[in-house]
Structure formats: C-alpha cells, structure tokens
C-alpha cells in the first residue's frame, strides 16, 4: 500500500492499493480495474469519483470531522462496483452530501456510513438517482449513528428510482450505545467512560480496514 499526497485536481488509479493522505479542495478520482483507496482526512472538500467500465473501487474514510462541508459525487461506468465506507466522529457543525447518479447498467454500489457524536451535529444528504432505461443495478445506503441527542444528526435520503429493474434501499438507524454492551464491558472491570469509548471506536472501525488506518 503506498501513500500519496495529491497536488493536482485529477488522479487516475488503476489496479492498486493507495492511501491519499492529502488532496486539494476538489479531486476527480478516475478508477480502472480493482482499486482500494483509504482517506484519513476530508476537510470541506469535494471528491468526484468516476468508475470506468468493469471497475471496482473500495473507498474507506476514517475521519474526525469538525466544522466540515464535504461532498462526494459518483459516476458509474457500465458493470462497475463501489463499496464506500465512511466512518466519522463529528464535533462542531458538519455537512456531508453524497450524490450518485446511475446512468448505466449492471452496477452495484454499497454506501455504508457510520457516525459517532462527539458533541457536534451532522447533516447527511444522500442523493441516489437511478435513471430510466437502466437495468440490473443495485444500490444500498446504510447509515448508523450513535448519539444520545437525536437532534445532533439529520439524515435526508433523496432516493429517486426511475427504472423498474433495480434493487435499491435506504436504511438509517440512530440511537445511543446499547445498554447491554455497556453492562457487559463494565462487568469485565472497565469503567463506564472506557467502555463507552471502546464501543464507539469499535463501531467506527467495524466497516473499515483497521490495519490500514492504524498506521496513519
């Protein structure tokens, strides 16, 4: 896995595993073949992802957001796959907009978002638009957030499906830490704060490759 600092507005990734440590305010990411990409910082930036025909991108974020406005736009080439895992702890006021317009066929996009409230707010606007005359596409959005303050998180799903031959779903779950998990760790001698911190970190790490981000 190699680390790169991107100093131009466009980057072509092809059959590689890469960590993008830094990029400018906006970046167009063109993907060919099978690519793994990890991004540890995302600060009020825009990422445009172009998946070429027959490509497969696994894109993982493990972020501490503070007063950010981030945007990701996705464009699928025919028969492409995207696994997007966006894991964040948020403080301050944050917005995250994700747009996916599917104009081609045989695509599979899975978007997993995990958030932990660190005394902040997060507004997630998830736009999915599957156009008419497309076929055999699958689109899944799954958003889970741990917070004790329901008003710290606002999720706006905007899923428009104009095709008949598509599997599309949106799921959002918001709630505090599971009491039985907290009790379990406390019953092993951990105090409440440590138990809570382990559970939250575990929740965020659950969708990303921990080994990659551990080194960063």
């Amino acid at each position: 896995m190699h680390k790169i600092k991107v100093e131009q507005n466009s980057l072509h990734l092809k059959e590689e595993e890469v960590v993008i440590t830094e990029f400018l305010d906006s970046l167009k990411l063109i993907v060919s073949g099978t690519v793994y990409c990890a991004i540890p910082t995302f600060q009020s930036q825009t990422l445009e992802i172009v998946l070429e025909e027959n490509s497969h991108l696994t894109l993982e974020f493990f972020l501490e957001l503070q007063n950010t406005k981030n945007k990701i736009c996705i464009l699928n080439g025919e028969n492409s796959q995207l696994d997007l895992h966006y894991s964040c702890k948020y403080s301050g006021e944050n917005e995250f907009r994700i747009e996916n317009r599917i104009k081609t066929n045989h695509n599979r996009n899975v978007i997993l978002i995990r958030g932990v409230d660190n005394e902040g707010t997060l507004f997630v606007h998830a736009v999915g638009d599957i156009l008419e005359d497309t076929k055999d596409n699958a689109y899944l959005e799954d958003i889970k957030v741990i917070t004790s303050h329901q008003n710290s998180i606002k999720i706006k799903p905007d899923l428009k499906v104009s095709s008949n031959a598509v599997l599309a779903s949106h799921n959002a779950t918001i709630g505090p830490i599971e009491e039985n998990e907290l009790f379990y760790l406390e019953s092993k001698g951990l105090d409440e704060a440590t138990s809570s911190s382990l559970i939250k970190d575990g929740f965020l790490k659950g969708i990303i490759n921990e080994e990659v981000f551990k080194d960063l």
């Binding site: 039985n180 998990e181 009790f183 379990y184 760790l185 092993k188 001698g189 951990l190 105090d191 440590t194 382990l198 559970i199 970190d201 575990g202 929740f203 965020l204 790490k205 659950g206």
Partner: peptide, 21 residues
C-alpha cells in the same frame, strides 16, 4: 447468551481491563 461487541477485540478489552485495574 453473551453479548457480541463488534470492533472490540478480546485482547483489547482484556488488556485495557487489567491495565485499568
């Protein structure tokens, strides 16, 4: 029926508990 905790390993929990105590 012991609870499942995703993302928290046995080693991490045990080491943290023993260290904290």
């Amino acid at each position: 029926n012991p609870v499942e905790i995703a993302g928290v390993s046995n080693a991490e929990m045990l080491r943290t508990s023993l260290n904290d105590q």
